[in-house]
Design a protein around this nucleic acid. Structure first.
Lengths: 213, 213
DNA sequence: TTTTGTTTTAAACGTATGTTTGAAACAGGT
DNA sequence: ACCTGTTTCAAACATACGTTTAAAACAAAA
C-alpha cells in the first residue's frame, strides 16, 4: 500500500473537497490532511495545484469520453439513413456517465456535475482551456448528431438550447441535495441522482424540440 | 464627491469583480483599487468581506423582491378565479429583473445572474443562509402561483422542473458573453441578454409543460 | 550488504490575504 | 475660529497559502 496509493488518495480527497467548497476555498493542506499524506506530495506527484485540478477532471472525463466516443462512432456511421432521436442522445449521455469507469456511482456523478459547474462559473481559465483542448473533439462529434436530430432548428437556436440543457443539468444535478432543503415542504428526500435524471430527460427533450416563435 | 460615494464605488467594483472572478479570487485590494478608495474602507463601511458580499446581493435583491412582491400580491389576490399562465409568470420575472431599481440594464442582469450562479456553486455557506433567511418568503409565494399555473404536475415533479428552469436560466445568462464567443459564427453584438431571454422562455415553457411518462 | 532511484517527511520560504490601528483630513454646528 | 464626530489614509499585523528544499525512509536490484 505504498506509492500509487498516494496519488489515488489525493485524487479522491481533492475530488470530494473541491466539489464541496470550490477550488480556491480548498487548500492543499485540506486535501493532504484528508488524504492522510504529506503536504509536499501534491507538488511532487502533480507539479502544482492547477495540475491537480486538471488531473481530477481527467480521471473522470477520460474514461467517460472514451466510452462515449465508441457509442457516438456507431451512431455516426449509420447517419444519413438512421437519424437518432433527441431523447436517445440524452439517454446515451446519462447512461455513459453512470456506467463508464469502474466505480461510478450516482453519487460520484453528482460530485462531478458540481465540479463541472465550478469549472464554468469559477474563473479558472486554465481549466476551461484544458477541457476545450482535451475534450472539444468529442463535443463536436456529439453536436453533429444533435444537429441531425433537430433539423428544424437554426444553428443559432440549437446552440443556445444546448446550453439551456447543459445549464439545467449541471445546476440541478450539482445542487440536488442542497436544493431540496430550500423548500418548506418536504420533497426530494429521495433525491437520488438517477431519479432526478429521469425527471430531467423529458423536460430537456420537450424544451429542445419546442417550436420557436 | 466625497463620503457616501465611497460605499457606492465599493459596491460597484465588488459587484463587477466578484462576477468576473468569483468571491475567493477577488481580494479586497482588487476591489478598493478599482473603486479608487482606501483598503481599510471596506472594513470600515461593511465590517468584513463576508458582509460586503451580502451587501452586494442585498443591493440588487432588495429592490427586485420588493418590486416582485407587489406584482405577486396582485396575482395572488385574484387567484381562485384568475389563474396565471406559466409564460406569464416567467415574463414577470424577467421584466421585474430588468426594471426594478433605477439603473438596471440587461448587462447588470447578466452580472447578477453570474453572482447568483456563484452563490450556489461556490461554497459560501453564509451567503446561502443569508439569501434563504432574507428572500425565502418571496420564493414560496412565487411557488404558490406556479402551482396554480401547473395543476397537472405532481408536487415533486413541479419542484424539480422549477429548478431545471432556474438552472438553465442562471447558467446561460451568467455565461452569455463567454458562451457566445464559443460559437464560430457571430452572435456577438446581438448577444444581448434580452435576446437570450427571448430564446429561453419558449424552451422553459415547453419543458415545464412537458408530459411526464 | 551495498547501491541506486524513488517516495516521504518536516521545516522553511516568500507572498498574498483580511483585518486592525492610530493619526491625519475633513465636515458641519456652535 | 473652535470643537466634535465621521471618514480617510498609510502602515503594520497576524495568518494562511502554494511551493521549495534537503534530509530521511524506503524498495528493489546488484
Amino acid at each position: 500500500m505504498a506509492q500509487k496509493d498516494t496519488v489515488k488518495s489525493i485524487l479522491n480527497a481533492a475530488e470530494e473537497l473541491f466539489s464541496e467548497r470550490g477550488f480556491a476555498e480548498t487548500s492543499l493542506r485540506n486535501i493532504t490532511t484528508k488524504a492522510g499524506v504529506n503536504l509536499a506530495a501534491v507538488n511532487y506527484h502533480f507539479g502544482s495545484k492547477k495540475e491537480l485540478i486538471q488531473a481530477v477532471f481527467a480521471r473522470f472525463l477520460g474514461p467517460f469520453c472514451e466510452s462515449l466516443e465508441e457509442r457516438l462512432a456507431e451512431m455516426e456511421a449509420g447517419l444519413p439513413q438512421r437519424v437518432p432521436e433527441m431523447e436517445e442522445l440524452l439517454m446515451l449521455l446519462s447512461q455513459t456517465a453512470l456506467l463508464s469507469g469502474h466505480n461510478n456511482s450516482p453519487r460520484r456523478l453528482g460530485i462531478f456535475m458540481r465540479l463541472l459547474g465550478l469549472a464554468y462559473t469559477q474563473g479558472q481559465g486554465h481549466l476551461r482551456r484544458f477541457l476545450q483542448n482535451e475534450y472539444g473533439r468529442v463535443f463536436n462529434t456529439y453536436m453533429k448528431l444533435v444537429t441531425a436530430a433537430t433539423p428544424a432548428l437554426s444553428e443559432e437556436e440549437r446552440f443556445w438550447r444546448i446550453h439551456f440543457m447543459l445549464g439545467a443539468t449541471v445546476f440541478t444535478l450539482s445542487g440536488a441535495d442542497s436544493l431540496s432543503a430550500m423548500a418548506e415542504y418536504d420533497i426530494g428526500k429521495g433525491s437520488d441522482i438517477a431519479q432526478v435524471v429521469d425527471k430531467l430527460v423529458p423536460f430537456l427533450a420537450a424544451g429542445v424540440s419546442a417550436p420557436h416563435r
